[in-house]
């Protein structure tokens, strides 16, 4: 069992619905974007276009963040998820630097979206689930997977650009789509073996 994702860059329209859905699901405060869409301008006028790269944690099979963690807070599950145990994390940010995908975010402060003076009921509730002084990252919405749900970014995507499932199961949608379309991974040369594949990159 190894959870993984395929993201079709031809389908992605760069709308950032995934970014917001992730925030809503995980209760992250301003500045913490566990999922984001990088936007690029490619080419020169008139042969120019926009390019989008949605990205979050790659849940690498060989995660560079895991080996540098000084406290054992970062761990890898049997199903491939790379997670942080907030009870063990000391917040040193070594993993943040070690991750080549900028997928880790130190939670040094918990701010409120409408400014310091007002805490919305949603923030009041969701911020309790965060531990200040730890590192935050995409969990593939591990808390939803048990209920048979997909990660929030997958379900919300209006372009259906994301496909999620078990990479070890050749019959899963994600395995098939990667097999059929030949997905590529980011920074393959680093040997991290990401579980997130990009199609039509």
């Amino acid at each position: 069992m190894r959870y993984g994702m395929a993201i079709d860059l031809k389908k992605c329209v760069g709308c950032n619905a995934c970014t917001v859905a992730c925030r809503m699901e995980n209760g992250t405060p301003p500045g913490i974007l566990l999922c984001q869409v990088e936007k690029y301008e490619v080419g020169t006028y008139p042969a120019a276009r926009m390019d989008f790269l949605p990205r979050a944690c790659m849940h690498c099979a060989e995660p560079p963040c895991l080996e540098v963690c000084p406290t054992g807070a970062t761990y890898q599950r049997e199903d491939g998820l790379v997670l942080v145990d907030p009870r063990k994390c000391m917040g040193c940010r070594y993993c943040v630097l070690a991750c080549p995908y900028e997928a880790r975010h130190p939670l040094r402060r918990i701010e409120n979206y409408y400014g310091p003076g007002t805490v919305t009921p949603w923030e009041e509730k969701k911020h309790k689930t965060l531990t200040k002084g730890t590192v935050q990252k995409c969990t593939f919405c591990a808390h939803r997977l048990g209920d048979g749900r997909q990660p929030a970014c997958v379900e919300v995507c209006p372009a259906n650009a994301r496909c999620f499932g078990d990479l070890d199961d050749p019959e899963s949608d994600v395995s098939r789509v990667v097999a059929r379309q030949g997905g590529s991974v980011l920074k393959a040369e680093l040997g991290t073996c990401p579980s997130v594949y990009y199609l039509n990159s």
């Binding site: 709308c15 509730k125 969701k126 379900e155 209006p158």
Partner: peptide
């Protein structure tokens, strides 16, 4: 607890079938 914690697309209904825009 009386707080809206999450809004998602209704997966069964058109036109969005579970998806939402930002």
């Amino acid at each position: 607890d009386g707080v809206v914690t999450r809004v998602e697309g209704n997966p069964a209904a058109s036109p969005n079938y579970g998806s939402l825009c930002p």
